[in-house]
Write a protein that binds this DNA or RNA. Structure first.
Length: 795
RNA sequence: GCCGAAGUGGCGGAACUGGUAGACGCGCCGGACUCAAAAUCCGGUUCCCGCAAGGGAGUGAGGGUUCGAUUCCCUCCUUCGGCACCA
């Protein structure tokens, strides 16, 4: 008996597909011939190391969708590329030893070879990589458009600075506030850095989530990340300075309970206060130490700390003079960097008040009504929020305001392996954009690229020196590179026109394919990449560069592949290398099993026994189909149990892949059909139909095996074969199993003709001896009949 | 602390709209083939009582709605994920 040989079969069909250029997508079809488009994208991988199981899962999900949609008449674009710039690739180079360019390109070619072995229907003719000048030229071009539109800007932002080594330190290089290299106390230094104005779209990013077909949990994560809070901005006057200071609060109803006032150590007013304060030395010391701490250190502090400034602010509702403190528990980058402290109704303020023995005045009672609040006493807190702000607004002391947790995206990196920011600094003209016709600004080849604290590009003196585009005098290039998330914010647009040397993309192509219909990737990219890409799409739409405002209609988040209950990782040593599994069992087995373990959006545990079970299924399918091909009669299949099962399978698999995206149950459905076919034997033409159906339905998962069997059944090119549809008339059953319950408990079940009238069903049910025993002569109070399902007697 | 998701056999999971809980697979048990093994095939497999027929219990716990609840509602427990000194 011939046994299925995965290796020769897979190689054979991969060659056939390649020769036929099967997965190249033509997008220049004339108007009338255009079929409905579908754009299927999986997150492009970092080219670090080799292909891993996580990749197998993501790209197989996308591949099943691609092959299914393609056979259903869609024109499907399913491209691939590499996120080859940035920290992951650079760290891989440091780990693997070598220059990032070499390690990156070696990894890309290895991973690409593995991808071809997996049989994924990817259009390799469109392959792009972020580190190629032909790609990052357009990063630079897009940056310049955003810069012109004031959506990219420079501002001073705090970095960790070692005063001894005179370098910027990464967060990880700071230990307990001290420099990793020399041990000196780290300071905060304000350096000019690049930002994208993501906050300009905060509200739209929030609102448009409603339009997207994303998992609930993913939308929730983005909502929390954007973190919209409704409240008010209120002005407190500082008489001694003659200045107003604004605070943001969500609880204006508690204004009468504000007994002190706190500024973040980074607040712009702090410098002036310090200068004029009687406690100047203490203030300076406190601010310096707070600045050196990492955010987590400040957040993790066990006790509240702070220093009194000696100044007072006027509470606008009652004229009370409240002391102004500086404390690190107030953050500069949320709200206004200053708060009114209401210790009676805020835990943090209360803790602070108790530490420094400041007064605590309750202004809301147990019934949620105001007390100690002058004319607002008795008002419900919710009403008071509005009333107090409206009242203060009359004198210009308050306004309703909304605050977001979302911050502008700081995208400059002091690393080597990234896209150069096309800016030249001129003494006279400041930051000047490199003209479009001088793009790309090519990343110079540097031997010593490892992070040192100063940007590695600064060493490339020849490269750094460049004439100012405005005046031609000596200038210096920006030496920081772009965050790799810039590359991934628009790559799905580049796929649509990947070889264009004149533009990042042609509008009609990008508008035709976009938005991405199904985007697959890890949840871990929800709050960064997925926000940035959405921001880019909105900004590019406002700039007239693209016709859409949302990049991803559907976002399918895949689970983690685990081994023994924990996520596979090299450091834990619990990694299964896909290449080895392919060597042993073939790619189809991996593809089938990874989707059969469980729902693809949930974490799954890989087992050796599991994949062996899948291999058994494939061998069984092969054997029975070969038997059918050789022995089953041809002709019109009888309408029998087997042919009906085949039609049911078509209906289920179509629904499972097409609508529910329940990839594991679709495989189960095919297994059921194969089981039934095995039992039914090959004597009837319906066996041929059942076999063809099983092969056709398993094709999106196991394309090599399916193609081979399709050929043996006397056909060709299954990948182009129209996806079948179930024949409704063949799905109709002549009878059904009637379930009879007494008081909701199943007491009997038997076959009944489909058209049996309700009264007759009841009569048949009552006649059953088993039911009779349970009715036990009692009076039937109620009889429920569910057509084609059951009869329930209530006694 | 806030927000979200999930708890079903020995294991992964299925049950889509309130209607037969446990599909499909793994594992295990028994059998066939074989000198034997592997491979393959056949049968069984939620738990408890029973030789069996059959009966009882059962979807994290407790309550509710309903003729009927894994599914809807309330309370609680556990696990996982996100955010977190966000005013």
């Amino acid at each position: 008996m011939e046994r299925y040989d995965a290796h020769t079969t897979e190689a054979k069909w991969q060659r056939v597909w390649e020769d036929a250029d099967a997965f190249r997508v033509v997008d220049a079809l004339p108007e009338g011939e255009r079929s409905e488009k579908s754009y299927v994208v999986e997150m492009w991988p970092y080219p670090s190391g080799t292909l891993h199981m996580g990749h197998c899962l993501v790209y197989t999900i996308g591949d099943v969708i691609t092959r299914f949609r393609s056979r259903n008449g869609w024109s499907v674009l399913h491209p691939i590329g590499f996120d080859s710039f940035g920290l992951p690739a650079e760290n891989a180079a440091i780990r693997e030893g070598g220059h990032p360019r070499e390690t990156t390109e070696r990894n890309i070619s290895n991973i690409t070879r593995s991808m071809r072995r997996m049989g994924w229907a990817l259009d390799f003719s469109r392959m792009i990589s972020a580190h190629e000048p032909t790609y990052y030229k357009w990063d630079q071009w897009l940056f310049l458009r955003l810069y012109e539109a004031d959506l990219a800007y420079r501002k001073a932002a705090p970095v960790k600075w070692c005063p001894v080594d005179q370098v910027v330190l990464a967060n990880e290089q700071v230990h307990d506030g001290h420099c990793e290299y020399c041990g000196a106390e780290v300071e905060a230094k304000y350096l000019e850095q690049w930002f994208f104005r993501t906050t300009a779209y905060a509200q739209e990013l929030l609102d448009d989530l409603d339009k997207l077909d994303w998992f609930h949990k993913v939308k929730t994560m983005q909502r929390n990340w954007i973190g919209r809070s409704e409240g008010a901005e209120i002005l407190f006057h500082v008489d001694q300075l003659g200045e107003d200071v604004s605070v943001f609060t969500t609880r204006p109803d508690t204004l009468y309970g504000a007994t002190f006032f706190v500024l973040a150590p980074e607040h712009p007013l702090v410098a002036e206060l310090t200068e004029r304060s009687p406690h100047a030395d203490a203030l300076r010391d406190y601010v310096r130490r707070a600045a050196a701490k990492r955010g987590e250190e400040r957040a993790g502090a066990e006790e509240k700390t702070g220093v009194f400034t000696g100044f007072y602010a006027t509470n606008p509702v009652n004229g009370a003079q409240v002391p102004i403190w500086i404390a690190e528990y107030v953050l500069m980058d949320y709200g206004t960097g200053a708060i009114m402290a209401v210790p009676a109704h805020d835990e943090r303020d209360e803790e602070f008040a108790r530490t420094f023995e400041l007064p605590i005045v309750p202004v809301i009672d147990e019934d949620d009504r105001l007390v100690n609040s002058a004319q607002f006493d008795g008002l419900p807190a919710d009403d008071a929020k509005r009333a107090i702000v409206d009242w203060l607004a009359e004198s210009g002391r308050a306004k309703h305001a909304i605050s977001y947790r979302l911050r502008d995206w700081g995208f400059s990196r002091q690393r080597y392996w990234g896209c150069p920011i096309p800016i030249i600094y001129c003494e006279e003209h400041g930051a000047v954009a490199v003209p479009d016709d001088e793009l790309p600004v090519v990343l110079p080849y540097i031997e010593d690229f490892k992070p040192r604290g100063i940007a590695p590009l600064a060493q490339a003196e020849d490269w750094v020196r460049a004439p100012c585009p405005t005046c031609g005098k000596d200038g210096r290039r920006e030496v920081e590179t772009m965050d790799t998330f810039v590359d991934s914010s628009w790559y799905f647009l580049r796929y649509c026109d990947p070889h264009n040397t004149e533009q990042p993309w042609r509008r009609e192509l990008a508008d035709f394919w976009n938005p991405v219909d199904v985007y697959t990737g890890g949840v871990d990219h929800t709050t960064m990449h997925m926000i940035y890409a959405r921001f880019f799409m909105k900004a590019l739409n406002d700039l007239g560069l693209i016709g859409h405002r949302e990049p991803f209609v559907q976002f399918f988040t895949n689970g983690w592949v685990q081994l023994g209950g924990t996520k596979m990782s090299k450091s834990k040593g619990n990694v299964i290398a896909p290449e080895e599994i392919i060597d042993r069992y073939g790619a189809d087995a991996v593809r089938l099993y990874i989707l059969f373990i469980g729902p693809a959006d949930q974490d799954m545990d890989w087992t050796e026994e599991g994949i062996e079970g899948m291999v058994r299924f494939m061998r069984r399918l092969f054997r029975i189909v070969v038997d059918v091909a050789e022995n089953a009669p041809r002709g019109e299949p009888a309408v029998n149990a087997l042919s009906r099962k085949a039609h049911e399978t078509i209906a289920r698999v179509t629904d499972d892949i097409g609508r529910r995206q329940s990839f594991n149950t679709a495989i189960s459905a095919v297994m059921e059909l194969v089981n039934e076919l095995s039992h039914a034997g090959v004597s009837d033409p319906s066996a041929r139909f059942a076999a063809e159906t099983a092969v056709s339905m398993i094709q999106p998962y196991a394309p090599h095996l399916a193609e081979e069997l399709w050929e043996r059944l006397g056909h060709s090119r299954l990948w182009m074969e129209r996806w079948p549809s179930a024949d409704e008339s063949q799905l109709a059953r002549a009878s059904f199993e009637l379930v009879v319950q007494v008081n909701g408990k199943v007491r009997d079940r038997f076959e009944v003709a489909i058209d049996t009238a309700e009264e007759e069903l009841v009569a048949l049910a009552k006649a059953s001896p088993r039911v009779h025993a349970h009715l036990n002569g009692a009076t039937v109070r109620k009889t429920i009949v569910v057509p084609h399902k059951l009869v329930n007697f209530v006694v």
